[in-house]
Design a protein around this nucleic acid. Structure first.
Lengths: 225, 225
DNA sequence: CTAGGATCCAAACGTACGTTTGATTCAAAC
DNA sequence: GTTTGAATCAAACGTACGTTTGGATCCTAG
């Protein structure tokens, strides 16, 4: 379930990727030692440097393995969404194409890799202001495609409003993916399994976002500070 | 400007807090060594353990110094907002009381401490799923007060919808505070100073949130999975 | 059967970390 | 003028880290 390719035999390389992904998500990248990873994967300490060159190489491999399929799926769904005619339906489709794959990978225990998404959000927050260049490059194409789609669907929106709304959209999604349960419950210390509710959570979020995106822009002639 | 109390002489203790806050925000808590902090503060390596007992003690002091005033300000503004009669105005007031102090502290170079907010968001993301207990305890009271206020203002909202909307609200705010500029610009690598636009950003976010909060709940009889 | 490349492994290397120690400085109290 | 306690300081302690090394082991092609 954890290995991305179930046909190949369980190689040391894959075991290292799986262990690293899980431990990175739990304790952070810097907080995870190669000793912990290799021990978890039943591999030798030197195996990481042999297979990936360095710890940094391992980090890149962990991200690349999941990020490529994730973004492909987003773009494919975006393509379908753009075929819609009704404006509201199209908007919902775009938003769903953007947040769906991430939240499914986060909450769906069957097909998903919850820990990778947690790692993704974590890494993004850690690098606030100046994200890892590799990570940003991987996203750049996808983000611009979605921005273009939203701009076409809501042509009356000014660029500034578009930018901020997209920003808040990413924020709500990333935070949901990173924290994984409502804050209110986090306080009470509950322990509910949210994996059966994936689609419900996605609909909650898409509802939340769609409403805000449809709102007319009121900031045409205000001034800050 | 950085020290919280400008009347007292520049003590080693305050210098350590200031340096730690800045370096923690830049490189993370684990990524910042006591040697870096004490060097930055022109203090001796052992001074941290003398004044704060341990590195963990220093971390707690860094958070406590800013968190107390921040949450006091939130509750005070919440009190004023609750005096409003018009529902929409009251809702906007509550949302502004919640996100305003954080974003002002993030973007306002005059009165604010941008780096602390960055540190806050970062720490929250790092601890995804199981935040630092101290940090959560500090917030618990504030969060429940805001949840109660929102529930009273929008009594027709079901608890689940309320919980998720509040969750998305925190997400959009936290992400904005952590990243600090629109993603679209982050890709292009721009270098605009957003500090003069504090109020504008807050209004964008409050608009975004208010619209979603006002939406009627449509999930009364759906089922997940 | 055997060469040779890929893989694994135990051990060690140098570096950086948080913390502790014991001496030293300094200013107020008596 | 002496005492006392807080504050500072250089130095060292033990631990953990990422990486390197060089030999052992495995597997496959010739």
């Amino acid at each position: 379930m954890t290995s991305v390719d179930s046909t190949t035999p369980p190689s040391t390389k894959m075991a290292l990727l799986d262990s690293a992904e899980r431990l990175f998500a739990q304790n952070g990248i810097d907080g995870t030692s190669l000793r912990a990873i290799t021990q978890d994967a039943n591999a030798n300490l030197a195996s990481v440097n042999y297979h990936f060159g360095s710890k940094e190489g391992l980090v890149g491999a962990v991200f690349g393995r999941r990020l490529r399929p994730l973004n492909s799926q987003r773009l494919e769904r975006l393509g379908h969404a753009l075929l819609e005619e009704d404006r509201s339906t199209k908007l919902r489709g775009i938003l769903r194409a953007f947040v769906g794959p991430v939240l499914e990978m986060r909450f769906d225990r069957q097909r998903g890799n919850p820990e990778f998404i947690q790692l993704l959000g974590r890494t993004f927050a850690e690098s606030a202001g100046q994200p890892r260049r590799e990570l940003l490059a991987e996203f750049e194409h996808v983000l611009s495609r979605f921005l273009a789609a939203l701009s076409e669907t809501l042509p009356e929106l000014e660029p500034e409003a578009l930018a901020w709304r997209f920003h808040f959209t990413v924020g709500a999604m990333a935070y949901t993916a990173a924290v994984g349960r409502p804050l209110s419950e986090l306080i009470q210390g509950g322990d509910v399994d949210y994996s059966p509710q994936v689609d419900r959570i996605i609909e909650h979020l898409v509802d939340f976002l769609e409403t805000s995106w449809m709102r007319p822009d009121r900031h045409r002639d205000r001034n800050g500070s």
